[in-house]
Amino acid sequence: MSGRFKPAVKTYTRPVTGTWWKENPFFLVYMAREATALFVFIYALVLLSGVVSLALGQSAYEAWQALLTTKTSLVFHLILLGLLAYHTYTWFKVMPKTTPQIDIAPQTIVKTGVLFTAGLSVVIVAVLFGVTR
């Protein structure tokens, strides 16, 4: 950045390596948060493929539904659920950093967010179960 202060004439600049995130456990946790976002994208593709198969007609949609009930698909979904739950938690974990200056303990904000989401998820599953049974 240019400005009124001028840099020292002769300096040595150390390069940032591509493995900087492996050098500190804190950065590994950060990268885990960022990397699990990829699985949110993958699950979005799963849902999108359902919409596409619905547009293609009844037989395509039934084939998609059948694919979801296979053992491989169930294991895949369980793994995705775990990764997505972790990803969701990481964002509630940093939520206190995004609020204005308020008199609520950061841990209370995190717990409230997690409990609210868990409760809402249970309600949605219950409603869907009631609608589709």
Binding site: M1, G3, R4, F5, P7, A8, T11, R14
Partner: peptide, 16 residues
């Protein structure tokens, strides 16, 4: 940037 040994150049921060 390193000026010498453990002394760094703080100019970038000062301008910011």
């Amino acid at each position: 940037p390193i000026i010498k040994d453990l002394a760094i150049d703080q100019t970038d921060f000062l301008n910011k």
